[in-house]
């Protein structure tokens, strides 16, 4: 029962993170939301493992945690190359989130 409660809570949090990932407005908001989504996925895999009585799922959770971390760094790396070539990059990027 307690695992079901945690699963529902993690699902709610994941959908909230997805909202931020869709709304943006900037690239870094999306990367942040994606990273947070990945953290929640790791928790979800672990809790789902306990919920279905198969804690072996934790191996997948560990692997997902590794991939999530590497993917976040890799995405930032990729876009840092793209940004380095973009001209006049400070203002246009901030415009999306002016108050």
């Amino acid at each position: 029962m307690m695992f079901a409660v945690a699963t529902v809570a993690i699902f709610i949090a994941m959908s909230l993170a997805l909202v931020r990932a869709f709304v943006g407005p900037s690239l870094y908001d999306r990367v942040l939301a994606g990273n947070s989504f990945g953290t929640k996925t790791v928790l979800l895999i672990g809790v789902m493992g306990f919920l279905t009585g198969r804690p072996d799922f934790l191996d997948i959770a560990i692997l997902y945690a590794l991939i999530n971390f590497a993917a976040t760094i890799a995405i930032l790396r990729f876009f840092s190359y793209r940004e380095a070539t973009a001209k006049d990059r400070a203002r246009p990027l901030n415009e999306g989130e002016a108050p």
């Binding site: 307690m2 695992f3 409660v5 945690a6 529902v8 809570a9 993690i10 709610i12 949090a13 994941m14 909230l16 993170a17 909202v19 931020r20 900037s26 870094y28 908001d29 942040l32 939301a33 947070s36 929640k40 928790l43 989130e97 108050p99």
Partner: peptide, 22 residues
């Protein structure tokens, strides 16, 4: 611990959605 942790996960996600800037 599960209730506290679930609450913290949801609150963190709410923060990501609600706070004004990056």
């Amino acid at each position: 611990l599960f209730l506290l942790g679930s609450a913290a996960v949801v609150i963190g996600a709410l923060g990501i959605v609600r706070f004004p800037d990056f």
